[in-house]
Simulated assay, not measured.
Amino acid sequence: MKIGKVPPDILQKSVYPFLGTKRNEVLVHSGLGEDCSIIDFGSQVAVISCDPITGADNHSGWLSVFVSCNDIAACGAKPIGILTTVLLPQGSTQGELTAIMKGIHEAAKSIKIEVLGGHSEVTAAVTKPVICTTAMGVAKKDAFVTSSGAKPGDDVIVTKAIGLEGTAILATDFENFLIDKIPESQIKTAQKFIHKISVISDGLVAAKAGVSAMHDITEGGLLGACCEIAQASGVGIKIYKESIPILPETISICEAFKINPLGLISSGSMLICTPDGNRVLSSLKSMDIPATIIGTITQKDKYIVSNGSKIPIVLPERDELYCAIEYVSKN
Protein backbone atom coordinates (compact mmCIF):
# COMPACT_ATOMS: atom_id res chain seq x y z
CA MET A 1 0.00 0.00 0.00
CA LYS A 2 1.10 3.59 -0.69
CA ILE A 3 1.64 6.28 1.94
CA GLY A 4 -1.66 7.87 2.99
CA LYS A 5 -5.11 6.68 3.97
CA VAL A 6 -5.87 3.00 3.52
CA PRO A 7 -8.08 2.72 0.38
CA PRO A 8 -11.83 2.15 0.91
CA ASP A 9 -11.86 -1.24 -0.83
CA ILE A 10 -9.20 -2.53 1.58
CA LEU A 11 -11.03 -1.04 4.56
CA GLN A 12 -14.17 -2.89 3.48
CA LYS A 13 -12.33 -6.21 3.34
CA SER A 14 -9.72 -5.94 6.08
CA VAL A 15 -11.11 -3.52 8.69
CA TYR A 16 -14.89 -3.16 8.76
CA PRO A 17 -15.66 -6.89 9.12
CA PHE A 18 -13.69 -6.89 12.39
CA LEU A 19 -15.28 -4.29 14.67
CA GLY A 20 -16.34 -6.39 17.64
CA THR A 21 -19.92 -6.48 18.91
CA LYS A 22 -22.33 -3.74 17.87
CA ARG A 23 -23.74 -2.02 20.92
CA ASN A 24 -27.26 -0.63 21.16
CA GLU A 25 -25.91 2.50 22.86
CA VAL A 26 -23.95 3.40 19.72
CA LEU A 27 -26.15 5.54 17.47
CA VAL A 28 -23.59 6.11 14.72
CA HIS A 29 -21.17 3.23 14.12
CA SER A 30 -17.84 3.20 12.33
CA GLY A 31 -18.25 3.38 8.56
CA LEU A 32 -16.86 4.85 5.34
CA GLY A 33 -17.22 8.62 5.30
CA GLU A 34 -18.02 8.87 9.01
CA ASP A 35 -15.19 10.34 11.07
CA CYS A 36 -16.98 10.04 14.42
CA SER A 37 -18.92 7.48 16.42
CA ILE A 38 -21.83 8.75 18.49
CA ILE A 39 -22.95 7.19 21.76
CA ASP A 40 -26.34 7.61 23.47
CA PHE A 41 -26.23 9.18 26.93
CA GLY A 42 -29.90 9.95 27.50
CA SER A 43 -30.76 13.51 26.51
CA GLN A 44 -27.24 14.01 25.18
CA VAL A 45 -24.78 12.11 23.03
CA ALA A 46 -21.04 11.65 23.30
CA VAL A 47 -19.18 12.20 20.02
CA ILE A 48 -15.75 10.56 19.66
CA SER A 49 -13.09 10.79 16.97
CA CYS A 50 -9.45 9.77 16.59
CA ASP A 51 -6.77 11.06 14.21
CA PRO A 52 -2.96 10.97 13.88
CA ILE A 53 -0.46 13.56 12.75
CA THR A 54 2.11 11.98 10.43
CA GLY A 55 2.67 14.42 7.54
CA ALA A 56 3.88 17.50 9.45
CA ASP A 57 7.17 18.13 11.23
CA ASN A 58 6.66 21.59 12.70
CA HIS A 59 3.54 22.52 14.72
CA SER A 60 2.59 18.83 15.02
CA GLY A 61 1.31 19.26 18.59
CA TRP A 62 -0.89 22.20 17.62
CA LEU A 63 -2.23 20.40 14.55
CA SER A 64 -3.00 17.22 16.50
CA VAL A 65 -5.63 18.98 18.58
CA PHE A 66 -7.57 20.39 15.66
CA VAL A 67 -7.57 17.38 13.33
CA SER A 68 -9.66 15.44 15.83
CA CYS A 69 -11.66 18.29 17.40
CA ASN A 70 -12.70 19.52 13.95
CA ASP A 71 -14.33 16.12 13.38
CA ILE A 72 -16.32 16.60 16.57
CA ALA A 73 -17.56 19.99 15.35
CA ALA A 74 -18.55 18.44 12.02
CA CYS A 75 -21.14 16.51 14.02
CA GLY A 76 -22.50 19.74 15.48
CA ALA A 77 -20.96 18.82 18.84
CA LYS A 78 -18.86 20.89 21.21
CA PRO A 79 -15.40 19.40 21.99
CA ILE A 80 -14.63 19.05 25.70
CA GLY A 81 -11.36 17.15 25.89
CA ILE A 82 -8.70 14.99 24.24
CA LEU A 83 -6.54 11.97 25.00
CA THR A 84 -3.12 12.16 23.34
CA THR A 85 -0.58 9.45 22.51
CA VAL A 86 2.92 10.69 21.65
CA LEU A 87 5.42 8.24 20.16
CA LEU A 88 9.01 9.49 19.94
CA PRO A 89 11.94 7.96 18.03
CA GLN A 90 15.09 6.85 19.80
CA GLY A 91 17.37 9.78 20.54
CA SER A 92 14.57 12.29 21.04
CA THR A 93 15.22 15.00 23.59
CA GLN A 94 13.15 16.24 26.47
CA GLY A 95 13.02 19.58 24.69
CA GLU A 96 11.32 18.00 21.67
CA LEU A 97 8.65 16.44 23.89
CA THR A 98 8.17 19.76 25.67
CA ALA A 99 7.71 21.57 22.35
CA ILE A 100 5.05 19.08 21.25
CA MET A 101 3.19 19.35 24.54
CA LYS A 102 3.37 23.15 24.51
CA GLY A 103 1.74 23.09 21.09
CA ILE A 104 -0.99 20.77 22.34
CA HIS A 105 -1.49 22.94 25.43
CA GLU A 106 -1.79 26.19 23.49
CA ALA A 107 -4.21 24.69 20.97
CA ALA A 108 -6.33 23.19 23.74
CA LYS A 109 -6.44 26.52 25.58
CA SER A 110 -7.47 28.34 22.41
CA ILE A 111 -10.65 26.24 22.12
CA LYS A 112 -11.18 25.80 25.88
CA ILE A 113 -10.79 22.03 26.09
CA GLU A 114 -8.86 19.85 28.53
CA VAL A 115 -6.08 17.36 27.85
CA LEU A 116 -7.63 14.48 29.77
CA GLY A 117 -4.70 12.08 29.59
CA GLY A 118 -2.92 9.80 27.18
CA HIS A 119 0.40 8.02 26.77
CA SER A 120 3.98 8.82 25.76
CA GLU A 121 6.96 6.65 24.99
CA VAL A 122 10.23 6.43 23.09
CA THR A 123 10.22 3.59 20.59
CA ALA A 124 12.24 2.19 17.72
CA ALA A 125 8.94 1.64 15.89
CA VAL A 126 8.92 5.25 14.59
CA THR A 127 11.52 7.43 12.86
CA LYS A 128 9.86 10.78 13.66
CA PRO A 129 7.36 11.90 16.32
CA VAL A 130 3.87 10.48 15.78
CA ILE A 131 0.92 11.99 17.65
CA CYS A 132 -2.51 10.38 17.83
CA THR A 133 -5.36 12.30 19.43
CA THR A 134 -8.77 11.04 20.52
CA ALA A 135 -11.29 13.86 20.95
CA MET A 136 -14.57 13.78 22.82
CA GLY A 137 -17.51 16.16 22.61
CA VAL A 138 -21.16 16.48 23.52
CA ALA A 139 -24.34 17.42 21.67
CA LYS A 140 -28.06 17.22 22.27
CA LYS A 141 -29.47 13.89 21.22
CA ASP A 142 -31.87 15.48 18.73
CA ALA A 143 -29.29 17.87 17.25
CA PHE A 144 -26.20 15.93 16.17
CA VAL A 145 -25.11 15.85 12.53
CA THR A 146 -23.48 13.07 10.48
CA SER A 147 -21.78 12.74 7.09
CA SER A 148 -24.58 10.48 5.84
CA GLY A 149 -27.51 12.90 5.77
CA ALA A 150 -26.91 14.76 2.50
CA LYS A 151 -29.96 14.83 0.22
CA PRO A 152 -30.41 15.60 -3.51
CA GLY A 153 -31.04 19.31 -3.96
CA ASP A 154 -28.93 20.36 -0.97
CA ASP A 155 -26.58 23.27 -1.48
CA VAL A 156 -22.91 22.41 -0.95
CA ILE A 157 -20.93 25.01 1.01
CA VAL A 158 -17.23 25.35 1.78
CA THR A 159 -16.05 27.58 4.63
CA LYS A 160 -12.95 29.79 4.38
CA ALA A 161 -10.70 28.39 1.61
CA ILE A 162 -9.41 24.95 0.70
CA GLY A 163 -5.85 23.78 1.30
CA LEU A 164 -5.12 25.88 4.39
CA GLU A 165 -3.49 23.12 6.43
CA GLY A 166 -1.46 21.69 3.58
CA THR A 167 -0.33 25.14 2.51
CA ALA A 168 0.81 25.98 6.05
CA ILE A 169 2.69 22.68 6.42
CA LEU A 170 4.51 23.05 3.09
CA ALA A 171 5.36 26.71 3.70
CA THR A 172 6.79 25.88 7.12
CA ASP A 173 8.52 22.54 6.59
CA PHE A 174 9.85 23.37 3.11
CA GLU A 175 10.57 27.09 3.34
CA ASN A 176 14.07 26.60 1.95
CA PHE A 177 12.69 24.76 -1.08
CA LEU A 178 10.18 27.53 -1.79
CA ILE A 179 12.38 30.56 -1.14
CA ASP A 180 13.58 30.94 -4.74
CA LYS A 181 10.28 29.87 -6.33
CA ILE A 182 7.64 32.19 -4.88
CA PRO A 183 7.76 35.60 -3.12
CA GLU A 184 8.94 35.44 0.48
CA SER A 185 5.86 37.45 1.50
CA GLN A 186 3.63 34.62 0.26
CA ILE A 187 5.63 32.06 2.24
CA LYS A 188 5.30 34.09 5.46
CA THR A 189 1.56 34.62 4.90
CA ALA A 190 1.06 30.91 4.19
CA GLN A 191 2.87 29.94 7.39
CA LYS A 192 0.28 31.92 9.35
CA PHE A 193 -2.52 29.73 7.93
CA ILE A 194 -1.67 27.34 10.77
CA HIS A 195 -3.82 29.60 12.97
CA LYS A 196 -6.83 29.25 10.66
CA ILE A 197 -7.30 25.48 10.76
CA SER A 198 -10.05 25.28 13.39
CA VAL A 199 -13.56 24.68 12.03
CA ILE A 200 -15.18 24.37 15.43
CA SER A 201 -17.07 27.64 15.12
CA ASP A 202 -17.91 26.81 11.49
CA GLY A 203 -19.52 23.52 12.50
CA LEU A 204 -21.41 24.75 15.53
CA VAL A 205 -22.81 27.83 13.76
CA ALA A 206 -23.84 25.88 10.66
CA ALA A 207 -25.46 23.12 12.70
CA LYS A 208 -27.71 25.63 14.46
CA ALA A 209 -28.66 27.19 11.11
CA GLY A 210 -29.83 23.85 9.75
CA VAL A 211 -27.72 21.34 7.82
CA SER A 212 -28.17 17.85 6.36
CA ALA A 213 -24.54 16.73 6.63
CA MET A 214 -21.07 18.07 7.33
CA HIS A 215 -17.55 16.79 6.79
CA ASP A 216 -14.23 18.27 7.88
CA ILE A 217 -12.02 18.53 4.78
CA THR A 218 -8.83 16.75 5.79
CA GLU A 219 -6.67 14.13 4.03
CA GLY A 220 -7.59 13.86 0.38
CA GLY A 221 -8.68 17.50 0.32
CA LEU A 222 -11.93 18.68 -1.23
CA LEU A 223 -11.95 15.74 -3.65
CA GLY A 224 -11.71 13.25 -0.81
CA ALA A 225 -14.37 14.99 1.28
CA CYS A 226 -16.80 15.07 -1.67
CA CYS A 227 -16.30 11.35 -2.27
CA GLU A 228 -16.71 10.47 1.39
CA ILE A 229 -19.86 12.50 2.01
CA ALA A 230 -21.41 11.21 -1.23
CA GLN A 231 -20.59 7.61 -0.37
CA ALA A 232 -21.83 7.92 3.21
CA SER A 233 -25.09 9.50 2.04
CA GLY A 234 -25.65 7.36 -1.06
CA VAL A 235 -25.89 10.41 -3.33
CA GLY A 236 -23.97 12.22 -6.06
CA ILE A 237 -22.36 15.65 -5.92
CA LYS A 238 -21.76 18.43 -8.47
CA ILE A 239 -19.08 21.05 -7.81
CA TYR A 240 -18.43 24.22 -9.82
CA LYS A 241 -14.65 24.61 -10.06
CA GLU A 242 -14.78 28.36 -10.61
CA SER A 243 -16.68 28.76 -7.32
CA ILE A 244 -14.12 26.96 -5.14
CA PRO A 245 -12.33 29.43 -2.83
CA ILE A 246 -8.54 29.07 -3.08
CA LEU A 247 -6.15 31.68 -1.69
CA PRO A 248 -3.28 33.00 -3.87
CA GLU A 249 -0.67 31.54 -1.51
CA THR A 250 -2.15 28.07 -1.91
CA ILE A 251 -2.16 28.40 -5.69
CA SER A 252 1.49 29.53 -5.77
CA ILE A 253 2.70 26.82 -3.41
CA CYS A 254 0.80 24.07 -5.21
CA GLU A 255 2.27 25.22 -8.51
CA ALA A 256 5.77 25.15 -7.00
CA PHE A 257 5.29 21.54 -5.84
CA LYS A 258 3.32 20.60 -8.98
CA ILE A 259 0.32 19.33 -6.98
CA ASN A 260 -3.45 19.74 -7.24
CA PRO A 261 -4.90 22.01 -4.52
CA LEU A 262 -8.25 20.18 -4.74
CA GLY A 263 -6.57 17.09 -3.29
CA LEU A 264 -4.54 18.86 -0.59
CA ILE A 265 -5.25 18.33 3.11
CA SER A 266 -7.60 21.14 4.10
CA SER A 267 -8.23 21.37 7.83
CA GLY A 268 -9.68 24.85 8.31
CA SER A 269 -12.45 24.30 5.80
CA MET A 270 -15.79 22.56 6.42
CA LEU A 271 -17.89 20.92 3.71
CA ILE A 272 -21.55 21.58 4.49
CA CYS A 273 -24.69 20.22 2.85
CA THR A 274 -27.90 22.10 3.57
CA PRO A 275 -31.37 22.60 2.09
CA ASP A 276 -31.00 26.36 2.60
CA GLY A 277 -27.55 27.54 1.61
CA ASN A 278 -28.33 31.25 1.91
CA ARG A 279 -29.52 30.83 5.48
CA VAL A 280 -26.35 29.01 6.48
CA LEU A 281 -24.20 31.58 4.66
CA SER A 282 -25.97 34.36 6.54
CA SER A 283 -25.36 32.67 9.90
CA LEU A 284 -21.70 32.09 9.13
CA LYS A 285 -21.26 35.65 7.87
CA SER A 286 -22.75 36.99 11.12
CA MET A 287 -19.85 35.28 12.92
CA ASP A 288 -17.26 36.56 10.41
CA ILE A 289 -16.74 33.10 8.91
CA PRO A 290 -16.25 33.30 5.12
CA ALA A 291 -18.25 30.69 3.19
CA THR A 292 -19.16 29.95 -0.42
CA ILE A 293 -21.79 27.82 -2.16
CA ILE A 294 -19.74 25.67 -4.54
CA GLY A 295 -22.25 23.12 -5.80
CA THR A 296 -25.22 20.88 -5.12
CA ILE A 297 -26.06 17.33 -4.09
CA THR A 298 -27.41 15.17 -6.92
CA GLN A 299 -29.09 11.77 -7.22
CA LYS A 300 -25.93 10.08 -8.47
CA ASP A 301 -22.52 10.66 -10.06
CA LYS A 302 -19.76 12.84 -8.69
CA TYR A 303 -18.25 15.48 -10.92
CA ILE A 304 -16.74 18.94 -11.20
CA VAL A 305 -18.06 21.40 -13.76
CA SER A 306 -15.27 23.45 -15.33
CA ASN A 307 -15.74 25.67 -18.38
CA GLY A 308 -18.84 23.71 -19.31
CA SER A 309 -17.13 20.30 -19.10
CA LYS A 310 -17.86 17.57 -16.55
CA ILE A 311 -14.81 16.08 -14.83
CA PRO A 312 -15.44 12.96 -12.68
CA ILE A 313 -14.51 13.27 -9.02
CA VAL A 314 -12.34 10.30 -8.04
CA LEU A 315 -11.11 9.54 -4.53
CA PRO A 316 -7.40 10.46 -4.50
CA GLU A 317 -4.99 7.54 -4.01
CA ARG A 318 -3.16 9.70 -1.47
CA ASP A 319 -3.11 13.26 -0.28
CA GLU A 320 -1.23 15.79 -2.40
CA LEU A 321 0.88 16.65 0.66
CA TYR A 322 2.68 13.32 0.29
CA CYS A 323 3.12 13.94 -3.43
CA ALA A 324 4.77 17.27 -2.57
CA ILE A 325 7.10 15.64 -0.04
CA GLU A 326 8.06 13.02 -2.63
CA TYR A 327 8.63 15.74 -5.25
CA VAL A 328 11.11 17.51 -2.95
CA SER A 329 13.00 14.27 -2.29
CA LYS A 330 13.48 13.78 -6.04
CA ASN A 331 14.43 17.38 -6.77
Score class of each variant (00 low, 15 high):
171 A>E: 06
172 T>D: 09
172 T>Y: 05
172 T>K: 06
172 T>S: 15
172 T>I: 03
172 T>N: 11
173 D>S: 05
174 F>Q: 13
174 F>E: 11
175 E>N: 13
175 E>M: 07
175 E>I: 03
176 N>L: 12
177 F>T: 11
177 F>H: 14
177 F>D: 12
177 F>P: 00
178 L>R: 10
178 L>K: 07
178 L>H: 09
178 L>N: 05
178 L>I: 07
178 L>C: 10
178 L>W: 05
179 I>F: 09
179 I>M: 06
179 I>H: 11
179 I>D: 11
180 D>I: 01
180 D>W: 01
181 K>M: 13
181 K>H: 15
183 P>V: 10
183 P>F: 00
183 P>M: 01
183 P>R: 00
183 P>D: 09
184 E>L: 14
184 E>A: 14
184 E>G: 03
185 S>F: 11
185 S>K: 15
185 S>P: 04
186 Q>G: 07
186 Q>S: 14
187 I>F: 11
187 I>A: 08
187 I>S: 07
188 K>A: 12
189 T>N: 10
189 T>D: 10
190 A>T: 12
191 Q>V: 02
192 K>R: 11
192 K>L: 06
192 K>W: 02
193 F>R: 01
193 F>H: 01
193 F>G: 01
193 F>I: 00
193 F>L: 03
194 I>V: 08
194 I>R: 01
194 I>T: 02
195 H>T: 14
195 H>L: 12
196 K>S: 11
196 K>C: 07
197 I>G: 02
197 I>N: 03
198 S>Y: 08
198 S>P: 01
199 V>R: 00
199 V>I: 15
200 I>V: 14
200 I>C: 04
201 S>M: 04
201 S>I: 02
201 S>H: 07
202 D>S: 15
202 D>A: 12
203 G>C: 02
204 L>V: 03
204 L>S: 03
204 L>F: 01
205 V>L: 09
206 A>Y: 10
206 A>D: 04
206 A>M: 08
207 A>I: 00
207 A>P: 04
